[in-house]
Computed example of a mutant assay.
Amino acid sequence: MGFECIQFHGSPSGQIVQRKFVHPELASDEVAVKVTHSGLCGTDVHYSRADMVLGHEGVGIVHSIGSGVSSLKVGDRVGWGYPNKTCGQCEWCLQGEENYCRNIQMFGIADFEQGSLSSLAVRKEQWLFKIPEGVSSEDAAPFMCGGVTVWTPLINHVKPYHRVGIVGIGGLGHLAIQFAKKMGAEVVVFSATDSKREEALQLGAKEFYTTKGLDDYSTLGITKKIDRLLISSSTKSSLALFYPILNPKAMIFPLTFGDGDLTVPNAGTIQNGISISGTMIATRFMQNKLLEFAGRNDVHVVAEKFPMTVEGANAALERLKEGKMRYRAVLSWD
């Protein structure tokens, strides 16, 4: 017997619609999860016109398990993000970087009935993560995508002695500030306006600079140059603006998808050894470590909450489209 559930799909109009669906019986490596919470982020806006279940920041309680499942039991609280299955055999899987698997099954390209805007989701055991007791479900949901997006470059490339620049204080930036501060780095925030200065400082930033209208960032009066720069805003512009305030061998991490191209100065990049590095979600190891770190270090998500209804989902989607969300959206069945 299958599992009947309520799902919230994208549609050609861009409005979220409600449907009923019956999941087939579980395969041996599958887990049925009763969804309690789901985040909503910019990727869901991109797919809002697609005929698929939206949501890829899920948290819920294990309802049933397949015959081959060994790491989870009924009643466990788990979360999941983009990926659902990797091949386990390619060079990336074999070296522990399965997030780059060329045969990855993930949100938007496979498993179109497995989104987290649903009353029940069926997932592969390998990409489900137990939520530690110290992490609330409301925090855990955005950690599944927004959290790991900033966590990966920080944990892989930032040392406690680095000065970390964060551009934008939105759904990604407010988490990047907290993680970088808790890692011991010195956090410097760049924002278009001064409106979020106090909040940035409260979250852990040491310095805050307003950039709107400036075409020469050397005039910002920055106290020391930046070692690592995370671009967490959706605006695409020339990275040349930041070069005067970057240390030699600095690394730049563009974190958001969107239209337009990032451009860099050729000579300045070569002469100063500047690196521009893309980053793709996180490995399973890093996702688990993020959850442990957040629980130990009191990292929390600033989120607006919505009911898991078609009205609530559309209200959250509209807030995202308008750029008014502060800072993540979390829907729940509570």
Rank of each mutant, 00 (worst) to 15 (best):
M1T: 13
M1S: 14
H9N: 05
G10H: 05
G10P: 04
S11C: 14
V17E: 13
Q18W: 04
H23E: 08
P24I: 09
V31R: 04
V31Q: 00
V31A: 15
A32C: 09
V33M: 10
K34E: 08
S38Y: 09
C41Q: 02
V45W: 07
V45L: 14
A50Y: 04
D51Q: 10
M52K: 05
L54G: 11
E57C: 08
G60M: 11
I65W: 00
V69I: 08
G75P: 03
W80F: 11
T86S: 11
W92K: 08
E97W: 03
E98F: 07
C101Q: 02
C101T: 12
F107D: 00
G108R: 05
G108P: 09
I109M: 14
E113N: 13
S116L: 07
S118G: 12
R123T: 03
K124R: 09
E125G: 13
Q126G: 02
W127E: 00
P132F: 04
G134A: 14
V135W: 00
S136A: 07
M144Q: 10
T149C: 08
V150H: 01
T152N: 02
L154Q: 03
N156R: 12
Y161V: 11
Y161R: 08
H162K: 09
V167E: 01
I169M: 13
A176R: 01
K181Y: 10
V189G: 07
S191W: 05
Q202Y: 10
Q202A: 15
L203K: 00
K206G: 10
T210Q: 06
T211V: 13
K212F: 11
Y217L: 15
T219E: 03
T219G: 01
T223C: 06
K224H: 07
D227E: 05
D227H: 09
R228P: 01
L230W: 05
S232Y: 02
S234H: 10
T235G: 11
S237M: 13
S238P: 08
S238I: 07
Y243L: 14
L246I: 11
N247D: 09
K249S: 15
M251R: 03
P254H: 07
F257Q: 14
D259S: 12
D261F: 13
D261M: 13
V264L: 15
A267E: 04
T269E: 02
Q271W: 10
G273L: 11
I274F: 05
I281A: 04
A282V: 07
T283L: 08
T283Y: 01
F285R: 14
Q287K: 11
N288Y: 03
N288K: 15
N288T: 13
K289L: 06
K289E: 15
L291H: 00
G295Y: 01
G295S: 15
R296A: 13
D298M: 07
V299K: 03
A303W: 00
E304F: 09
K305Q: 02
G312M: 05
G312F: 09
A313G: 11
A313H: 00
N314R: 03
E318L: 13
R319S: 13
L320F: 06
E322F: 04
G323T: 10
M325T: 12
R326E: 01
V330K: 06
L331N: 00
L331D: 04
W333L: 15
